[in-house]
Design a protein around this nucleic acid. Structure first.
Lengths: 415, 415
DNA sequence: TCTATTAATTCGAGGCTCGAAAAAAATAGT
DNA sequence: ACTATTTTTTTCGAGCCTCGAATTAATAGA
């Protein structure tokens, strides 16, 4: 975009740069920051001294391997844990969890609750979230920490401004104004995020070697979810959180999907779809509400043991995912794929039919087949991604702009 | 992305801004530039006087309605046609065309040639393009115009750097290094672009009201093509030119596609697919080489006249496009769609089955159905988009950076 | 204690934008 | 014909910012 640029935008941008290298590597001397950013030593000196007096950075005294060198020792700088705190909330089927996280990224306190989301009204869900967040806000107040951001992750679709839960399989209600509700209650800016997008953020932060500027994270559980990084940016559609991979069409007028339509990929590859196919219940059978992990594991074991309806069910799931990836790759080009969630435990069953289907599509035509990685445990990733999302917002949008006394409310300012 | 920012990046960015508002509206006074950019009058004065002495802008004397006002009259500034020229090349099935275009966007000379691309080797194609471009380069030299950029549009896929024609239906050869060949021959930077992306660029430039920050352009002809603007940027995949809408999967293991795979959308909605379905030739019939526009028009007339195989063929095409758009919308969210090319003449036949199919997908679920616009003539759009692409490159990457004497080779510098 | 070595800061040069004031170039009124 | 008015454009100084070079700081080894 062509936007106007002012003199001080330069400083803002370079503060961002410094904060982003520090967020990636926890502890860095000014010399190392100079090397990693490409800024001149004088500029790094100016920026870090600003950030130190704003209380955003702190000096870390460490008797490390530094002492063995000759000249003036480097002083390690790091993100000041007390500079701020964020609250990361994960709302999932029948469960709610939230954590207060300091600016360095460490969890201070976390809360969990079980709740019957399907039976609750939108207002009840909002009230539950508000109550749990309230506890954490109180905790932050007690510890004298400023909370400039809250991020909420859930399975489903948000609006363009990441403020409203438009639709989610965890509730029958639509258009729940979660962002506005929390913002009104606590006066803290809130974003509402798709869980798979947060998985992508977490993978990118954790392992940029495998999950770098371009990759796709697919969550296999009761339904399907997807988060993508495209050219270094979290991919969001033109309007909402986008990325409804599970509801791309696989078979026109095909199997009944949880969304009410027919032939979606999820209607073949979601747990409920594998279950009903393995039990030979027919494509029109309404999706089961939830299927225990142990039952899915038993299905997988049966599929591994002998050829039969179970194996064919996993075959169909693999085919659906393979054709879907093929269509996705036709638009976006192939990229590494992370298979996350409980379904990754059956990836051995899914892999071959998936690759066979993928090879039948144009996605495999002009390019090499991408790598696949699996990780069965999605909740830690969602939590970590959600926290990271909130923290990088603070880095970029709050602490990067020097003016307007960002130190207000900051714990102690290191002078 | 977090990149380093220097002091003079500010000026570069603001020069871009000034050039971009001038490119949009041909003739603007400094006061109007001030209003449209948001820059201060002093900054606009400084930037425009630089651009004038660089020969990039020129003063336009016009005895317009300006004379009726009271104070000092505004002096209209415009892009100096003589500041540079670009060459836009369109390579299509059996035809090659190219034009020399001045910096203000007007065609100076254009060349056309018919060539049997399917029968030619990659080297022969490169030689033909090189010869035609050579003529235009000579013309530019004769007119003492500097040519800082060449853009080539074709139907098919390019590599990440937009330098190589990886695959195209107009030739059997793959990996044709068109960009490097031209760059070596003339020493001018070249990009190789997908034709539908250029259609999107042209629509966006021509009518930003309808085709703004988010829209999809679909070309219906022998095959299918797509170009998209997403969040104000031309959408390109992670690696190549991306956007192979026609090769998303519609029916697993379905009809034979020109690409050799089965079940692609194109295998139902391309001209050859409609033709073979209307003639009841069966899904396995290899695609016809080319089908005359008149024959397609006759098919459409037959379909309009009576229910029969022709109408069912157009129905199937509409369904394929509808399901494909549904899958696309699942990932990107719904956006306005422009249907371009000869197939748009049969849009009345395609529209209803397309909308019915779209309504069966998740793409229509949480959002309103987007608008559709049609335009049967694609070649002028491809040419205009290609020229615009080259010109905005010059605006942004060459003339925006003040240093390195950009005026070298410029016709006359208006002092 | 002195010296070599590495880290971090300071200072002046040179860019940039902006606001206020000044200059420029017309028309309207007497 | 001449002045006042109005509108556009330029000029000038203040205030940011980055950078390179010189300077100061802090340590290990001799």
């Amino acid at each position: 975009m062509t936007a106007i640029a002012r003199s001080d935008d330069v400083r803002r941008q370079n503060r961002r740069l410094v904060l982003s290298v520090l967020r990636r590597s926890e502890k860095l001397s000014r010399t190392e920051i100079t090397a990693r950013t490409g800024l001149s030593p004088s500029t790094v000196s100016a920026i870090t001294s600003d950030l130190l007096s704003d209380g955003i950075l702190c000096k870390l005294r460490d008797g490390d391997a530094t002492a063995t060198r000759r000249g003036r020792p480097q002083v390690a700088l790091g993100l000041n844990p007390d500079a701020a705190a964020v609250i990361a909330v994960v709302l999932s089927l029948n469960a709610l969890s939230a954590a207060l996280i300091d600016y360095a990224g460490d969890v201070i306190v976390s809360e969990q609750a079980r709740l019957d989301t399907l039976a609750m009204s939108g207002e009840e869900i909002v009230a539950s979230v508000r109550a749990m967040v309230g506890t954490l806000v109180d905790e932050a107040t007690y510890r004298d920490m400023h909370v400039p951001r809250i991020a909420v992750a859930f399975q489903g679709i948000t609006d363009a401004g990441a403020r409203t839960l438009l639709w989610s399989p965890i509730t029958r209600e639509i258009d729940i104004p979660l962002g506005d509700a929390l913002e009104n209650a606590f006066g803290i800016p809130v974003t509402v995020e798709n869980d798979c997008n947060m998985i992508a953020v977490a993978l990118n932060a954790k392992d940029p070697g495998h999950y770098g500027d371009n990759f796709i994270a697919i969550l296999l559980s009761h339904g399907l979810g997807m988060g993508m990084m495209v050219r270094g940016e979290l991919f969001i559609g033109t309007k909402s959180s986008g990325g409804e991979f599970g509801h791309m069409n696989h078979v026109p007028d095909g199997a009944l999907c949880r969304c009410g339509r027919r032939g979606c990929i999820e209607a073949y590859a979601g747990n409920y779809a594998i279950w009903r196919a393995a039990r030979a219940l027919g494509d029109d059978t309404p999706p089961a509400a939830d299927i225990a992990d142990a039952d899915m594991a038993a299905l997988a074991a049966a599929a591994r043991a002998a050829d039969g309806p179970e194996r064919r069910a996993f075959d169909a799931a693999g085919r659906a995912i393979g054709f879907g990836l093929g269509s996705l790759f036709a638009i976006l080009d192939p990229a590494p794929v992370a298979i996350v969630g409980q379904g990754a435990l059956a990836f051995d069953l899914i892999r071959t039919p998936m690759l066979e289907a993928l090879a039948k599509t144009a996605g495999g035509q002009h390019h090499s087949i991408p790598s696949f990685y699996t990780d069965p445990d999605e909740m830690p990733l969602i939590r970590a991604g959600c926290a990271m999302r909130a923290l990088t917002f603070v880095d970029r949008e709050i602490f990067a702009r020097g003016a307007a006394s960002p130190a207000a409310g900051v714990g102690r300012a290191v002078a």
